[in-house]
């Protein structure tokens, strides 16, 4: 069996883990963001995608690749939902109200 590791994927994962730590450390403050859970879950799903893209070099390449892309898609959808919640609906900002 040939194991194939791509440096860029490892770099993505490492940066992703760094962001994860950053997020976990700032969680109380991030909660002040509207619908913050959706955005953070979107990031977590994306991070899972980055983990899968590294893992697919070792085993189950096709399945993990499939799941990886699915994670990207799900993450994008969650981010889009967050955008809709924050910018697309809800009460107008104070400026608009004025």
């Amino acid at each position: 069996m040939i194991y194939e590791i791509f440096e860029n994927e490892v770099v993505m994962l490492l940066i992703g883990v760094g962001v994860l730590i950053f997020i976990l450390g700032s969680r109380p403050r991030l909660k002040r963001l509207p619908a913050s859970k959706i955005l953070i879950v979107g990031f977590y799903v994306l991070l899972v995608g980055w983990v899968l893209t590294v893992l697919e070099g070792f085993f189950c390449e096709r399945l993990l690749d499939y799941l990886e892309h699915m994670c990207y898609a799900v993450s994008s959808v969650l981010v889009a939902i967050w955008c809709w919640k924050v910018f697309g609906s809800g009460p107008p900002s104070r400026k608009e109200a004025l």
Binding site: W82, C83, W84, V86, F87, G88, P92, S93
Partner: peptide, 11 residues
């Protein structure tokens, strides 16, 4: 998401 953001930029 980008379109929604731009549309509701001021919100």
């Amino acid at each position: 998401a980008l379109i929604v953001l731009l549309k509701g930029w001021k919100r």
